[in-house]
Design a protein around this nucleic acid. Structure first.
Lengths: 364, 364
DNA sequence: CGCTAGCACTCCATCCTACAGAGTGCCAAG
DNA sequence: CTTGGCACTCTGTAGGATGGAGTGCTAGCG
């Protein structure tokens, strides 16, 4: 299923390429109303809403045409029309206007970010909750791993007879740790020697580089170092892993009427790996919105996904996502997700570079 | 709302104090069947299920009596009976038998815990997921804070011009950190001096004790220490805080039929503070099961809560909980929750004492 | 005296029918 | 090309009939 690109028209006013102006207007009316009411939309409603003084009869023929072209569908003969995925797609690409609501969304988002301070992890978690609250959809924040950061401090802390904690602080302020079973009892002095060795050899390197180091210290130290290799590897893997925060999944309960759908969607949200790869896929296909079957995850075919990349230093790493029914408030949701992704990108950039930490927190 | 105690009868065989043997048997039949089918239970079904060769007429009078006494209720005249909270309560206190299923539950739990290794946090999280999977209800694990542990290592790591990371390792292997804005640029040498000072003064003390220390080091060090006071305080608060892991909330979607209920319950599960205090309340009232209105949280009045304490060194701290509909598989759920709480208690005890770490993990 | 068979009764769920309403498609006329 | 008009279709709702599951009561039996 090849993905259609989200080519942004450059500041022309409503240039529907595939669809006549009138059909576009009608489609818009149907989509807008259906998003609001969740009821099939009949020609008379469209006649009222769209302001193209046309009779219902004319609108009916146009709607039939739109159905024929795959933008609309009928639940049954003699019911109103419902947008198809394709219909929503056209709406999102060509019709969704920035809207007035967006400004207020953006304002709320930015005031939230002005007020919040503290550890990055907190910020991420609370952002996802806030975004869910704001949009009334489930929000996902995937924060980049710390794979690119370098080691600021590394050490081994003894925890007991044969147990110890391998501890690494990275330049972005994150801390990675892993408990280690040393196998045999190790003297405190040796532990300290190992710590110094670690600090000296790992400092300033990224964890990946650190894995490839060859060094030949004193024999006791070397023995301990050997037992540290596997832990270091898992430490590295852990540092690379994205953090995922899912906010407000309960919002989805009221978004669908079939309880079975709710359950399916929720259980997918619980599998964070799936969510991450879903967002990644959507992002890689160049879309910011994936509707219904577009993303190819069948269990989520009644959902739309909005993704906004988190970009730090120009490269995108991580994402902000929203998951809702296909009849989603696209403009508002897009605006909110984008706003959050920008603010978070800023934060991440600020925290990442260490020395450029302009927005560091203080307070008790 | 005073809580009724869960007085455990001491090894007598089905001693219903408030209810005749026959009524008890009938109540049991109703509860069991209703839990299975979610349909009101009529006298004829009871006659089949309970093996007390009685006619439906007799059973009807008894059921009327049970309704009068508040154990059963009717959705409407001429429908079967449904257990009330009180009915479930009697069932749980006097009728629920260990059952055969429990053994298999316990086995699954213990094999899970044999297989799992790694950081405590992981174990806790995966335990909650496993418990949810096993029981098909939402599972909650509240792990105790680290307030009682003492400091194994404390230090300040510089992160940039004026930013630093205050880092404390506790004896139970947990790490607490907080980013600090030093206000002014501080020399690396001073940072190291502060680190040494922290290590010397905090080592071996609990974080609470550490807060009350008075020491008078060199002036530059003292200056930095002053800015550390607030961060230390929040570090302490953070260390005290319980960690909460909620597993499998999606299981609840199919447990209720009203989508509104699902949404309410889910949104409560998202507020971890509420969940923690709910579990605490139930635990403190001396119950291991709170049914319907018993726990006093109206939004959850259609739910039953099962709680099993986590006890480390004899004191209970933290808990394992299950949240499901009042028509819950009580015996199985209780068995599972208890099994998990015991295994987790063991783990926590093992990790907590440091030197007695019998079950430390190894492997790459 | 406890138990039971039998009966009258109630209420729900289901089915059918009728019907109004919302919607469509088509066509002939402007 | 548009539109008013018309015939048609389908759903949702309301009303009435019916059967079934269930109850409560009571008279009679062991």
């Amino acid at each position: 299923m090849p993905s259609r690109r989200n080519r942004a028209p450059i500041s022309t006013d409503l240039p529907p390429v595939d669809l006549g102006d009138r059909q576009a207007a009608i489609l818009e009316a149907v989509v807008t109303r259906y998003i609001g009411t969740a009821q099939p939309v009949g020609s008379s409603h469209v006649a009222e809403a769209a302001e193209l003084n046309l009779s219902t009869a004319t609108i009916r023929t146009e709607m039939a045409q739109l159905e024929h072209e795959g933008y609309l569908t009928q639940p049954h003969t003699s019911a109103g029309r419902i947008p198809t995925d394709k219909g929503y797609r056209f709406f999102v690409d060509h019709l969704a206007k920035p809207g007035i609501a967006d400004a207020s969304q953006r304002r709320k988002v930015s005031s939230f970010f002005k007020a919040i301070e503290g550890e990055m992890e907190d910020v991420l978690e609370r952002s996802s909750a806030m975004l869910a609250d704001l949009t009334q959809y489930a929000a996902v924040v995937v924060a980049p791993g710390h794979g690119t950061s370098t080691v600021r401090s590394a050490q081994l802390v003894s925890l007991g007879a044969t147990a110890a904690l391998l501890l690494v602080v990275l330049t972005d302020g994150s801390v990675e740790k892993v408990t280690v079973d040393l196998g045999a009892s190790v003297e405190e002095a040796t532990i300290e020697a190992v710590s110094r060795h670690l600090q000296a050899t790992l400092g300033g390197k990224s964890l990946h580089e650190a894995l490839e180091l060859e060094a030949h210290p004193a024999p006791e130290v070397a023995a301990v170092l050997a037992t540290l290799e596997a832990p270091l590897r898992s430490l590295c893997a852990e540092a690379d892993a994205e953090q995922v925060f899912v906010g407000g999944p309960s919002k989805l309960a009221s978004a669908f009427d079939a309880v079975e759908t709710v359950r399916e969607v929720l259980s997918i949200l619980e599998q964070q790996l799936v969510v991450v790869s879903l967002l990644r896929d959507v992002l890689e296909s160049g879309l910011s919105v994936a509707i219904g079957h577009e993303h190819g995850y069948e269990p989520l075919s009644s959902c739309a996904v909005i993704v906004a990349p988190l970009s730090v230093d120009g490269t995108t790493s991580g994402a902000v996502g929203l998951l809702g029914p296909t009849r989603m408030q696209y403009p508002a949701a897009l605006a909110a997700a984008t706003a959050v992704s920008e603010e978070l990108s800023d934060r991440l950039a600020g925290a990442g570079s260490g020395s450029t930490s302009t927005k560091v927190r203080h307070r008790g």
